[in-house]
Design a protein around this nucleic acid. Sequence first.
DNA 1: GCCAACGTTGGC
DNA 2: GCCAACGTTGGC
Length: 154
Amino acid sequence: MRYWLIKSEPDVFSIDDLKKVKREPWSGVRNYQARNSMRDDMKAGDLALFYHSSVVPPGVAGVARVVGEPYPDPTQFDSKSEYFDATSPKDNPRWILVDFEFVAKFDELVTLQKLKEEAALDGMVVLQKGTRLSVTPVDAKHFKHVCKLAGWKP
DNA sequence: GCCAACGTTGGC
DNA sequence: GCCAACGTTGGC
């Protein structure tokens, strides 16, 4: 059982959107490290902090769960998609994703500022300077601490 | 294989 | 809108 943090711009796809649709393919990730996490390391049942980025204030809005097995991101082959990748081989797709399902929306956003203030969260990847990764691993102890800050029990 | 130029992310 | 950080691209 591993823990993750996934970033999303809520104007594009928010925790409320996930709650509404229940399950969502995490399409559009075009970074190899993030892809490798989804392809190689994520297992059904893993939990992820759902982080709202590029809004004021940014922060963790809730929790999602990995469902099913990794599979090729269909948007890479869709010429009408903004995520279309003409160079991805059809017989060996470059971009692999997993689906996430809704688990919980926190009563209150746990803001980035709050995360930074917590000594217990020192070393959390998303807090490291210059980290732009949209999918990052989270230590179990950090995951649990963020849930505690939110007043939510896994 | 080096590295400059360029593009993107995302907090502020 | 600015800009720091950093990944990618492509010329050599």
